[in-house]
Simulated scan of single mutants.
Amino acid sequence: MSSEKKIKVGISVGDLNGIGCEIILKTFEDTRMLDFCTPVIFGSTKTISFQKKHFNINLNYNGIYKLSETVDGRINILNIWKETPNVDFGKETKEGGKYAFISLKKAVEALKNDEIDVLVTAPINKHNIQSENFKFPGHTDFLAKELTGEALMFMISDSLKIGLITDHVPVKDISSHITPELIEKKVNKMYESLQKDFRIRRPKIAVLGINPHSGDNGVIGNEDDEILKPTLKKIQESGKLVYGPYSADSFFGSDGYKNFDAVLASYHDQGLIPFKTLSFGNGVNYTAGLSKVRTSPDHGTAYEIAGKGEADFNSFKEAVFSAIKIYRNRKEFEKLNKNPLKKLSAKV
């Protein structure tokens, strides 16, 4: 390995009653992960020791009390609380939400201050984390407030990338949220991310219709004809390779998605059901469009198996690898754009 300083991966522990700590510890039980990054877990050595013992995981770590004490190439536990939170696996508790937020808040502060390079978040419970300090539908909206940029929920895997025009919005409100301005904003963010974060020079994007069969020329709703189609035409005229709207019901079964670099779905389940069907366990939730890199696994707290040692850690491991890869791609993109000669030779 080169002596180059490793990327510092900050990790929030999520709900302590879920599978968050289990998948974190299982990921880094494989010491080869330390060849790729230096992890910093935002929690406490007491909490991690309890979880490590419970799951019988063989793992050595370095306990620290400030980020300047981080040891490169080792697993670091930043002690951000002194008490020992009660862990009740599989149960939704206020305490579980409280410490999930403390971990997330401290990790985001470190990210904003460039004390860590990227953030990987373990799953939270969107209900018990709610408080005076956290009034958001989930991680994405909180990060959008804390970090500069416009957030795009972007589900990514090697074979499929799906972003959302609307994310955590009730079904009854979806059509009222979809405006030409929002469509343009999300398409532009996806296009920019594909170029900057995934090194795709001229991205090709498919957009899924709002209504069944994209409205069937107004027979099943007029939002596709009146809002989506004119907006996509305008975006196409600007030179972007954006196509649609496509009927969502047949788009994935016919392998239509394989002809594109990414797909933009109109709403949450339209995008996440096919993504999790095709990529579950290997997919990653990436918050694109922000000034910093944040990823997470493609699943929730999984209370039903919490504490049993059954959690699959592959999605979390992929989230770590994706964060590292995107961080490096961004750095390379910045270098190319600062050096016109390199940029020109890359185009030739």
Rank of each mutant, 00 (worst) to 15 (best):
N128T: 12
I7P: 04
I273Q: 11
K308R: 10
L59V: 03
G97K: 10
V71W: 14
R74S: 11
L336Q: 00
D224E: 08
F280A: 06
T70K: 15
F333M: 04
D249M: 14
A107C: 13
M1H: 07
E109P: 01
Y286R: 02
I273L: 14
N62K: 08
D197G: 04
G300Q: 12
T277F: 10
E146I: 02
F142W: 07
K161W: 14
M155F: 15
F313R: 03
K204M: 05
S176K: 14
A248H: 01
P274V: 09
V187Q: 10
E115I: 02
L164D: 05
K331D: 02
G14D: 02
D88C: 09
A144V: 07
L111S: 13
G289F: 15
I11P: 00
K186T: 02
G14Q: 04
F260P: 09
E226A: 06
R201N: 06
N125G: 07
W81A: 07
V284R: 09
I24H: 04
A122K: 03
P123C: 00
D269I: 15
N339A: 11
E181H: 05
E304I: 13
T295A: 03
A346F: 08
P180W: 09
E29Q: 14
S250G: 13
K26I: 09
E318K: 14
K126W: 11
K234A: 11
T179N: 11
L290T: 10
K94I: 01
L336P: 00
V13F: 04
F154Q: 01
F252V: 09
N314F: 04
D114E: 14
N128M: 01
K66Y: 13
S68I: 04
D225C: 03
V187G: 08
K53C: 12
F28P: 10
T47Q: 13
S12P: 00
I116N: 06
A151I: 00
F154G: 03
K331P: 00
I273D: 01
F316N: 10
T45M: 08
M153H: 15
N285C: 06
G14I: 12
D298R: 13
Y99R: 15
E29L: 08
F134P: 04
G163D: 01
A122M: 02
A288E: 08
T38K: 14
I80T: 05
N259W: 03
D15H: 11
D261S: 13
K292Y: 05
M153Q: 12
N329H: 06
K331T: 10
P170Y: 11
I162A: 09
F251V: 12
D141P: 03
G218C: 05
G163R: 05
I23H: 05
F42C: 08
C21I: 05
Y286L: 15
A110L: 08
K5S: 15
A248R: 00
D88S: 15
